[in-house]
Each structure stands twice: as C-alpha cells, then as structure tokens.
Amino acid sequence: MSDRLSRMFARCAAENRAALGIFITASDPDVDTSQAILDHLPGAGADMIEFGMPFSDPMADGPAIQASSQRALRAGGSLARTVGMVRRFRDRDGTTPVVLMGYYNPIYSYGVARFLDEAAVAGVDGLIVVDLPPEEDEELCLPATRAGLPFVRLAAPTTRDSRLPAVLRNASGFIYHVSITGITGTRAVPTDLVRDAVARLKAHTDLPVGVGFGIRTPEQAAAVARVADAAIVGSAVVTAIAESLDADGRAGERTVPAVLELVGSLAGGVRDARR
C-alpha cells in the first residue's frame, strides 16, 4: 500500500529526478476509455496516478476538471466503479501508486469503513480529499491512516507558517503543495515561487513534496521537477481528453493516444529537468 508510494519516491530519488503525477477522472469520458488510459499511463511515463473520484460539486476545481467530472458522472461513474477500476489496474501493474483524489461526500455516503476496506483491497495507495482540512481529521484522515492508507495533505500559499504543524501533523504519503491561490487549472504555476514554497515545507517535514494546480507544459513540469519531489498535472490532461471527443462527446480513436502523448512529453520534461 503506502509501500508503493515510498518505493516510487525512493526510485525517482535514486535516479535523481522528480516523479510525474498524472490526474485523470475515473470514468471520463466513459468507463472503458478511462480504464484504457489508466492502464497505459505508467507506460507513457506517469510515476504516480491521481485518480479522480467524480463529484457533482467540485468546489476546488476549475472548468476543465468540472467538465471532466460531469462527463464521468454522465457515463455512469461512481465511487464503487472508481475502486473497481483500480482493482483491474492492479491486475496488470503492481508497482505504480494510485492515489484517489476528490471530495468527501461520496465517501461519507458510501460509508468510511467500507470504503477504506475496499480501497485497500483494490490496491489504492493513498487519499487526497480536498474538503477535509486538519480540523476534520476524525472523519477520514485518522481512520484511513489506521487502515494503512496514507492521507495526503494539501498545503496552500495561504497556509501560514503558524498553521503548518497542524497541517502536517497527521499527513502521510507525501505533501501536495497547491502552487496557486485558486482553483485547478486556472493560472500558470508561479515557478519562481515554488522553490521557496517547497523549501518551506521541507523545513517542517521529511515527507516528499509534490506540486500541482497550474502545470500544463513540459517546460513548467521541468521547472517544478527541479525543486520538488513530484510534478502533478491534471487540468491539461483532462483537457486533452475533452479535445479528442467527437461532437456528441464520445471518445474517438485519438482519445487514448492524445493523452498518452501529452503524458510522454510531460515525462520528458520531468526526466530531463535536473540534467
């Protein structure tokens, strides 16, 4: 479980490079296409997968991921299906960590204990739940940690130093630094500020630090990869899915390759960053 995450970060560190995290929403644009993308992400260069749990009201997400979530829900996406897709992925990939990312209500509705059991058995490696700050750790963070599932904490530019200990206290897996004061995919990552932000977090924690919200291009990914342990890309990936769809919103033969080509170019940026 968490072993896959720590082994992945150790592997990348040994290669003197950052990891590439790729976000897609489960069941976007449909279950089969989404499974095909998921299954092929590691081969295209993704070191870690943030697998989005679709939600009707994604309040921290910009238009691209909102639309992605809507497509997934229209295609019949659900939490049970998301976990099932990870289980299928694990049949063919035993090493690439998969972290489920989303909002709390579908998990709460499903039942926390049941969800944690099924996620662990399916081969999920961690959770990122955007609307659960440390003030609500009893809800899911602590039960997840007890069940052996790392709870990845978000740290934001608005998180002051005085608050960092509270944010980091029950964190595990890695720290996800939100690079912009804003929602996903709406501003470009301020690469000049990321170095200091990562250094600030590193001064408070031994956990790896990933950076996301605003990385779109291989160049931006490379800039982040020079200073962080992972560069995470989401909106650009789901935008590639959206742009590959036909007029009726259906996946075409270009959908999977378009995503994998983008991931390949991002992986190139990340792998060349420190050379």
Binding site: M59, A60, Y104, V130, D131, L132, P133, E135, E136, R153, L154, A155, A156, P157, T158, T159, R160, R163, V167, V178, T181, G182
Partner: peptide, 22 residues
Amino acid sequence: EDGHFGSFGGRYVAETLMPLIL
C-alpha cells in the same frame, strides 16, 4: 468551538480557504 451542532456543521473546506475561514 469547532462549529458542530450535534453531528452537523463543521468546516469542510479546501486548505486554501481554511486560514481565511479561521
């Protein structure tokens, strides 16, 4: 003090907002 009425209420917001809510 954490904003709960019985089991209801609370502060379920993204970290970016949380310092401002405080």
